[in-house]
Structures are given as C-alpha cells and as structure tokens.
Amino acid sequence: MSLYDELGGEASIDAAVGIFYRRVLGDAYIKRFFEGIDMEKQAGKQKAFLTMVFGGPNNYTGMDMRVGHKHLVEKMGLNDTHFEHVLAHLRSTLAELGVGSDKIQEIINIADSVRDDVLNR
C-alpha cells in the first residue's frame, strides 16, 4: 500500500494543500515568490506535487518544476534557504495531519529530491 493510499488518497491531499499553502503564504520570508499569481493554478500545482511526494498517481518529469521556477531563480534569487523553508512547512503540515515521524522523513526525502529541478541546477 502506498503512502498515498495509507493517508487517505485524494481527500487527504486536498486537506494537505490547504494547510501547506496557508503556511507558505503566511511565511514572510518566502511569500513574495507567490505574489500576483493565480491562487487556483498554484493550488493545482501543489496538489500535483504533494500527490507525487506521497507516492500517488503522477507523471513527474521535473520539466514543469524547472520551467515553473526558472524566472524565480533568475529574477528573484530563489535559493536553497527558500527551498528549505518550504520543506519545513511540508514537515509541519504532515505533523498537523498526524503523519508519523518515520513517514514524514520518507516524504521529506522525496520532496528534497526535486531541489535541483526547482533551483534549475
């Protein structure tokens, strides 16, 4: 059974996106990267990302992540520290959803594997 099913499938991803996105927007250090963007589209992308890290059905190639963050890296200085803030928010989102610490580490490792795609390295 994948972690995705274990956590409750699509409904749990919807709950996670709500918590995760609120935490990210509430973080003064990174919220400027989210200003002026379409919140619905952003929530859709976060849902696809969380589905992937939870091991749900996905089609992840990294291309979308690279293209989607390229201008943020080049024009706004998106870097490792910002990425780590997002990871921290994912960690606390999972804790809030009651995911155990072993599973959290497993998910964080998967999320961390997209770091180079996000930072266009």
């Binding site: 919807d14 996905n58 089609n59």
Partner: peptide
Amino acid sequence: SACGQGVCQTCISKAVKGKPPVESQKG
C-alpha cells in the same frame, strides 16, 4: 496538459456539445 492524472487541471476544457462523464470533472 501536465500531470496526466486529473490532478493539476492544466488540461481543463469545456464541452460545448455532449456531456462529459462525471469522473472527468473530479476536483
């Protein structure tokens, strides 16, 4: 299109004739 799994909604389209199956409108 992007995710191919009905998650990211990049491929959203409108049926101007015919009825889309309910499963294709999830989320």
